[in-house]
């Protein structure tokens, strides 16, 4: 139980405890009754719990069971492959972009006093333009939906895997770049100053001092980003024809079953999505827990404050 709750109310005494227990039981029973009346009963009346609809998914003797799970397995692989590619490339792109932005910022204060004025102005102008350009690109692709990015990547590039990965990398690369940036800015200021006083260049400072520390502190945020990428592969599924990840496969196979059986009763999207969501839930919950664990472990070391997952600006949404 976390710290913030305990400060809100007194530790319950015997009477409060008794009251809490009674209240818990009442609320629990009420919840069960409501669920039964307003969810279970109508769904049951529509035959949503019948084996006709569930059989293809949970009954190994069902004639469609093997085929359904073959397809779901292919879908799971497609989800994982795209997510893996996307997260690796996003990390690379994010690292490079984050470092570039840090460097540009460091360079932009430079006056180049030793160079002839014309060259100095040219260099300053160039860093300004580059700075503005990266800024505009970042704001643009961060401000539009990933679905739209994927849709247009698909229209431009074609293929199935490519547009999904490209769309995810563009968005998540930018997000990770921000994580990298705040991670490096979070490294104690004295470190940078010490490095500079040793005579390291700004690239050397970044590479040797800031980045290694930053990457360690970024780890939790990176892992939570995997959750986002895994979920966002589903966006590829609803847009890119032929990219059949778990969600698209569920949609397609649930439409197919009534055709194969020549019976509309077999149309079972709810059942498919329940199973597939359970798969997402297990994997993503484990990843979230891993991120939390790392965050806690890292935050016990006083000097390296991890990048707060929540501070990555709602990227998990």
């Amino acid at each position: 139980m976390s710290r913030e709750t305990s400060v809100l109310y007194d530790a319950p005494g015997p009477r409060a405890k008794r009251r809490t227990i009674i209240l818990s039981v009442v609320i629990g029973l009420a919840a069960v009754a409501l669920l039964y009346q307003f969810v279970y009963k109508p769904l049951d009346a529509k035959g949503q719990f019948s084996m006709v609809k569930w059989g293809p998914l949970i009954d190994p003797d069902n004639e469609y069971f093997d085929g359904v799970w073959d397809r779901l397995w292919v879908g799971a692989k497609a989800t994982m492959q795209a997510a893996a590619l996307a997260i690796v490339f996003s990390a690379l792109v994010g690292l490079v972009l984050g470092v570039i932005r840090i460097l540009l910022r460091a360079v932009s204060t430079r006056r180049y006093a030793t160079l002839p004025p014309a060259v100095a102005y040219g260099l300053r102008g160039l860093t300004w333009v580059l700075n503005a350009l990266t800024r505009v690109c970042v704001e643009f692709f961060r401000g539009i939906p990933v679905v739209i990015t994927i849709f247009f990547a698909w229209q431009l590039l074609g293929g199935t895997f490519l547009p999904v990965v490209v769309g995810l990398v563009i968005y998540n690369g930018i997000v990770i770049a921000e994580i990298v940036r705040s991670g490096m800015e979070g490294v104690a200021k004295g470190q940078r100053e010490a490095a500079e006083s040793l005579g390291l260049s700004s690239l050397q400072t970044t590479r040797l001092i800031l980045l290694p520390q930053a990457i360690r502190t970024m780890l939790p945020a990176l892992i939570s980003q995997i959750v986002v990428v895994l979920k966002d592969t589903a966006l590829g599924g609803i847009i890119v024809a032929g990219y059949e990840e778990l969600i698209a496969t569920s949609r397609q196979v649930s439409q197919l079953l009534p055709q194969l059986a020549f019976d509309q009763e077999l149309y079972n999207p709810l059942q498919f999505f329940t199973i597939v969501c359970l798969m997402f839930l297990v994997v993503n919950y484990a990843l979230s827990k891993l991120a939390q664990y790392l965050e806690r472990r890292l935050s016990t070391k006083a000097d390296a404050k991890p990048v707060k997952v929540t501070s990555a600006a709602g990227t998990g949404v």
Binding site: G67, D70, Q252, V253, L256, Q259, L260
Partner: peptide
Amino acid sequence: FDQPGFGLKGLDG
């Protein structure tokens, strides 16, 4: 891949 009778992707893909 989703037109019954004309082009419908089966469980075998």
